[in-house]
Design a protein around this nucleic acid. Sequence first.
RNA 1: GGAGAGAUGACCGAGCGGCUGAAGGUGCACGAUUGGAAAUCGUGUGUAGGGUUUAUAGCUCUACCGAGGGUUCGAAUCCCUCUCUCUCCGCCA
Length: 428
Amino acid sequence: MEDLIMLDHKFVRKNIELVKKAVADKKESVNLDNFLKLEQERRLLLAQADALKHERNVVSKEISRLKRSKQDASDKISEMKRTGEKIKELDMDRRRVDEEIDEILRWTPNIPHESVPVGKDESDNVVIREWGDKPNFDFQPKPHWEIGERLGIMDFSAASKIAGSGFILTKGAGARLERALINFFLDTHTADHGYTEIYPPCLANEQSMFGTGQLPKLKDDMYCLEGDKLFLIPTGETPITNIHRDEILSVDRLPIFYTALTPCFRRESGASGKDTRGMARVHQFNKVEMVKFVRPENSWDELERLVANAEILLKKLGLPYRVVKLCTGDLSFAGAICFDLEIWSSGVKRYLEVSSCSNFVDFQARRANIRFRPNPKAKPQFVHTLNGSGLALPRTVIGIIENYQLEDGRVAVPEPLQPYMGGLKIIE
RNA sequence: GGAGAGAUGACCGAGCGGCUGAAGGUGCACGAUUGGAAAUCGUGUGUAGGGUUUAUAGCUCUACCGAGGGUUCGAAUCCCUCUCUCUCCGCCA
């Protein structure tokens, strides 16, 4: 993979103002003026080296001809020896410049879609729509950790004994509730929405992490096995999207829809002190992810359907939620646009993000080199990739426990989950 | 973990210092044949970067035979390192 493609050179060069704006709006810091300078230098070095290589190719053929007819070629050989050294120098210079350019491009984020509101952080996100009513209790609703510990279905002290703070342990009906949700989600996506279920590796190498855009920016947010150069995946998006890395997909295979349950590992290093109680923000959690590979012209429609595929789960579960469009400052490095689904949870009295649905357009496809051929004669083109959670588990569990809690501390099981819980209607 | 074999274009597979951007086949596209199809025959068919250009057209140059480095006037071919795959042995859920 010597030639990793981020945003491509030409595009950045020709759309420098657009890229600069994206960098500023996403609050990244990338020196794009330096890019222009280096890019120019690169082209110059390349032209010089190419000219010399051309000469070498021509003369080498001549040497071969002379030798075959038993003629002397020694002055041509010594001339080419010098040319070879010159080429080596130019190539080395160019490689140095390439490395600097790539470093800049590696840190250049995807360009937000024009419809994305410019804003500094989550306070500038825009609520698109809301669904369902927040439950009305005639008692004081409790947070999930109180309910969970009293019912004996969550054990936070055991989890921290085993691994440390920020880890969770569920048991009995609590563990089963999560498993029920997982099955409900996967069954719905595979049976109703046309996704193929995958179970991928949950460790991934550097290249995969780069492909989906976690590297280089999020290096410190991930768990890394130094000795093996592997990362624990922070999301299922990483292994699933990388299934087709470095492939040219035949057009009749598109669109491809995958869904997968994976654990997600996050160091949450910048988040200490936030949501420390309970299971709203933890180092390891399960998530069912949906990933799509589509033709570019379809990706906006596919995004709408992706969001709908996640929303239907919340509707079926009867969890009140809102759909939020992220502003530029809250949008991920790789995203062109992103809708978050946030459920209202009565105990913590907050909206909790349970899904993020993004269109990456061709950004991940470039980095991971995932292409398709629109027709047999056409040049390969980058696909568009999308992904969204459907859904993140611990927070959905929170929503159910807190919104379905009863005054006596028991918890009702939403109807669609009951078959997955062996008919259980109430957790007590 | 030990021993061996291998990695070549969309795919399969030859080549093992110059005449190879790469034989042959499959697939695909176009054409011929057919009432239509199959079969057959013919032609074509890689990717990326630079230059030129209104152009992702054309022309031209360069690079690419797992990745990185080296030897050489010249490397798919020789040498070194790494990664991955397969076979056998050992070990283990």
